[in-house]
């Protein structure tokens, strides 16, 4: 693995194992996986279906738990956190982008982006509005502020999801196949946007993808196979 300084490591995984049951079959999703996610990285996680990409992202994002191994996020031992502390960690430090956007259909663009900020009671209404406006501007959806998700295209919806992940100013944005539901042109636009945010704002991205064409656009590629990173 990469040689890094501890201060530069955002997420640190050692010998992580995860099994789960799929019907009568037991799937060994991660088999002693080791990984360091570095600050400012723009990393693509590549692998076949069932290789463990989503499981790895879920475990780094504290929405799933490993059976064994160590996970540190910003030097915090995640496994020792309570459910409430994990919720706070997710809210403050991690943004999620989902393949199928996962926007709340009855809320407009502004309200969808506002959602994660509603938990942060210390943020004033004024600051919240400023942050939302900035996030919307950064993803180029200023004109669609009051549109409901079903009035937007797939690419626009994913931009809303990116703005929602961005608005809390997280250390890490995890994206599980963010372009899988998009056409080629829109895929490149979304990757452009994510790269732009990575360069300008220094946001760390870790995303999974099947698309080999994206490999030459990322700073780091991790190949995962049968639950371990092979390169």
């Amino acid at each position: 693995m990469n040689t890094t300084t501890t201060s530069n490591v955002l997420a640190h995984l050692r010998n992580v194992q995860k099994r789960y049951k799929l019907g009568d079959t037991e799937v060994h999703a991660l088999r002693g996986l080791n990984l360091d996610v570095l600050k400012g990285d723009f990393t693509a996680l590549v692998g076949a279906s069932g290789s463990g990409k989503s499981t790895l992202l879920n475990i780094i994002g504290c929405i799933d738990e490993p059976d064994s191994g160590e996970i540190f996020f910003e030097n915090i031992n995640v496994q020792k956190l309570s459910e409430t502390q994990k919720s706070t960690l997710r809210n403050r430090k991690i943004g999620f982008i989902f393949q199928s956007f996962n926007l709340v259909p009855v809320l407009n663009v502004f309200e969808n982006i506002e959602l994660p900020l509603l938990i942060q009671k210390e943020i004033s209404k004024k600051e919240r509005d400023e942050r939302i406006t900035n996030a919307i501007n950064e993803v180029g959806l200023t004109k669609f502020l009051h549109h409901l998700p079903d009035k937007l295209s797939g690419g626009q919806r994913q931009r809303v999801a990116i703005a929602r992940a961005l608005v809390t100013q997280p250390s890490l944005i995890l994206a599980d196949e963010p372009t899988a539901n998009l056409d080629s042109d829109t895929t490149h636009k979304i990757i452009d946007l994510m790269l732009d945010l990575n360069k300008k704002k220094g946001v760390t991205f870790l995303f999974s993808t099947h698309d080999e064409k994206l490999m030459n656009r990322v700073t780091r590629t991790l190949r995962i196979q049968d639950g371990i990173i092979i390169s």
Binding site: L89, P116, I119
Partner: peptide, 16 residues
Amino acid sequence: TREIGTLRSMGFLPSS
């Protein structure tokens, strides 16, 4: 259900 999952992933507590 997925909406609940999304909210939880954003940091919303089950009680909220």
